[in-house]
Structure formats: C-alpha cells, structure tokens
C-alpha cells in the first residue's frame, strides 16, 4: 500500500508538527508514505468563496501529484471533503473520479481502511474534541446531534485508545467554531463570537487541550485562546495519537 500524503497549504506553512505527526503515525502503523513535494492547495478557499470556476489549475496539479497513489491521506477533513465533492478535470475526468474515491481524512483512514484497534500512545491530559463540521457532517466522521440515529465518532474512537487521556464532555458537542474559510474575515464579528463561544464550552468543562481532525478550526480557536492569554492549547489529533509522553 502506497499512500500519498496531502498536506494542506496552511498546515505546511504554519503547523508542520501536525504534518510530521501524521507522517510518523502512518509510518508507525506500517504504511509506506510519500509526500509529493510539488503540492500546493486543494482550491477550497476559492471554491467556497464562489470561485470554483477558477480552481482548474489547482485541480489539475492535485491530480498530477496524487493520481498514482493507492490512497491519499490528509490531516484535514475540510480539504478532503472539498476534493471529494468538487475535484474535476476537463481533460482527465476519469483520473479525477479516481482521486475523489481514494482520498481520506486521517482518522477515517485509520478506522476504516487500516482498521486500527490499538495505538501505542500516551497523553495524560484532559482533552476536548472539536467536531469539525466538514469532517463530521460532510465526511460523516461522527454522528450528528440533529439526527435520530445511533451515535459514533471515529476521532473519539481513536482517542479512547490513547493511554491516560481524559475526554471532556461539552454542552454543545457539534456546534461550528465559526472559522468557515473566508467567512472568518468577511463576517469577522460573527466568526469571532462563534469561536469565543466554542472555546468557552471546552474551557468551562476543564479541557487542557482542544483537538480536532481539522487544523483550520484549531487555528481559529488558537487565535482566540492566545488573545485571551489562556493556558489551554490546541493540538491536531495526529499529534495526540502519536504522542509518547511518559
């Protein structure tokens, strides 16, 4: 099995540790992983702003970088959802279809493809899980509170395998954090208010860390936590699943 590692642009440049943890975790689980060095961005920021028609360059490059792999894995539910729903190609639509089928968010890849049932990780802290909307409602990584259906959560299932980790319960387990791509600046007031409320739910329930399968939500919440001089930190789920604190 050869996996192509898809690292979204903002993770590449701001959160290399999340990417490194993803790579190491996959390698630890015996997967052959390569990172196509010429990758840039999936085009989501443009598409969500109404400029999907301008993403052909991004799409073609994405296909070129990733078409050859057995699976494409990324530590971002949102970017994966974008690729799954909106990646097309005028010349090579067959390849695009194939890419859309084999792209996975990291935690769903671990639970659904690798069928991981144990991890050698230890993280002795209280952790709040932020269910990022695109991963949860888009990729169906966790059951949604709106539906009358049996609960499950792929990220939580994995976190429960981490030694000494304590999950905190939230008042609103799957409310949006308000990042929303360009929404975070175009609707600055609402975005910030949503972020403050989301952070408060975690903090009020004693979380020392907020984790998620999407770094963009965490970046937004981190911006708020740091402005508040909070001791609470954000950490991508890969970093916890790969943690070896003693």
């Amino acid at each position: 099995m050869h996996v192509g590692l898809f690292i979204p642009c903002y993770i590449d440049q701001f959160y290399p540790n999340a990417a490194i943890a993803t790579l190491k975790l996959l390698q630890k689980l015996g997967v052959k992983v390569s990172y196509p060095i010429h990758q840039t961005c999936c085009g989501q920021p443009m598409a969500n702003s109404g400029f999907e028609h301008l993403t052909t360059g991004c799409n073609d490059l994405f296909i070129k970088n990733f078409a050859e792999f057995d699976y494409i894995v990324s530590p971002s539910g949102s970017c994966v959802l974008h690729v799954k729903e909106h990646l097309h190609s005028q010349e090579e639509e067959e390849k695009a279809v194939n890419v859309r089928k084999k792209v996975y968010e990291l935690t769903e890849f671990l639970t659904d493809v690798l069928k991981v049932d144990k991890l050698s990780a230890r993280f002795p802290h209280k952790v709040g899980v932020h269910q990022s909307c695109h991963g949860q409602r888009g990729l169906k990584m966790s059951q949604m509170t709106e539906l009358v259906a049996a609960p499950f959560s792929k990220p939580m299932q994995l976190l429960q395998m981490v030694q000494d980790l304590e999950l905190v319960e939230l008042s609103r387990p799957d409310e949006c954090c308000g990042f929303g791509g360009t929404f975070c600046v175009a609707e600055e007031a609402i975005s910030v208010k949503m972020g403050k409320d989301r952070v408060a739910d975690h903090v009020n329930h004693g979380a020392q860390y907020i984790t998620a399968a999407d770094m963009s939500c965490l970046m937004h919440m981190e911006g708020i936590l740091r402005r508040q001089n909070s001791q609470v930190k954000v950490l991508h789920i890969a970093e916890i699943l790969n943690a070896e604190e003693v």
Binding site: A19, G181, C184, V185, A186, E188, H220
Partner: peptide
C-alpha cells in the same frame, strides 16, 4: 484564506496570528 479580503487585517482584530514555525513541513 483568512487574510485574503477587503477588510484590513480582520483576523487580527480579535484573534492572534498563528506563530510562524522555523521551517515549513
């Protein structure tokens, strides 16, 4: 995405910027 827009530094008004790491991934 969080910086491309017409409002001057709307991210920074109420949020800190992520700290740039020493090197990219």
């Amino acid at each position: 995405p969080f910086m491309v827009n017409n409002k001057l530094n709307a991210w920074y008004k109420q949020r800190d910027m992520p700290e740039p790491p020493k090197q990219s991934f």
